[in-house]
Design a protein around this nucleic acid. Sequence first.
DNA 1: GCTACACCGCACTGAAACCG
DNA 2: CGGTTTCAGTGCGGTGTAGC
Length: 255
Amino acid sequence: MVGSQMAAQPHRRSARELKTASVPLKADLCGRLIRRYKRFLADVELTSGKIITVHCPNPGSMRGTNRPGSLVRCSTSDNPKRKLKHTLEMIRVGRIWVGLHTLRANQIAARALALGVIPSLEGYSHIEPEVVAGAGSRLDFRLTDHPKDPRPTWVEVKSVTMSQGTTGLFPDSVSKRAKRHLETLAQKVSDGDRAILLYVVQRADCVTVKAAHEIDPAYAEALKNAASLGVEIQAVSARVRSTEIRLEKTLPVVV
DNA sequence: GCTACACCGCACTGAAACCG
DNA sequence: CGGTTTCAGTGCGGTGTAGC
């Protein structure tokens, strides 16, 4: 089965180019990854030879990207409250940069929603981030005030960094939370709302997205179930550069 | 002694709560 | 009302504990 947007045309696989949406970035500190440890920490050897500890903003296992020796780029924060001045933003995998910062996926999604560049999500004039969606659960966006669709639309963004060939895979480790989000989205559909799971693939070498069944079969099952209940499963890919993350195209999701 | 499970700290963000 | 503080959230990995 293919994501609901594509369900009517399962043979159509070509990605669709999007109008421009980008998030500026200043990842001007270059180096090589020595190791990533303790979930939030990574040691990086700068080109000068100096070794620094940087904040790693990706809480996942970073499977497939957590390779010591790989080129990395970091941004610099002037927040005096931070213990670590630098943030690991991206890692070189093959010929592309892969965005590691999970928050950037939400930022690019927010920009895309605001600009209306994702065809199935344009037309909403009211966008709220981080909206409480029932008991102990928050979803990334709620869209309302659509000229033709009176339903509130809930959007949960997932950052995809792992791939196999040209297929983006999510999650990169067992994720109860991601599964719970799917269940929350399905609940919203049964309440009469519209619900979207939006994968933001922070690498430009993917042409499709699917659940990482081998890593988290329960999540893959929940995804299938959510899609069958009417949750729309969508994906966009972004090209990651040292100066910006730019949305490029929509991708089909294999459910 | 071994395995399985529970708990906690890690650094940061952003929303919520609080206070003047 | 604006500024400040608190807290939930994020999952890995190390440590502690219980049970066999």
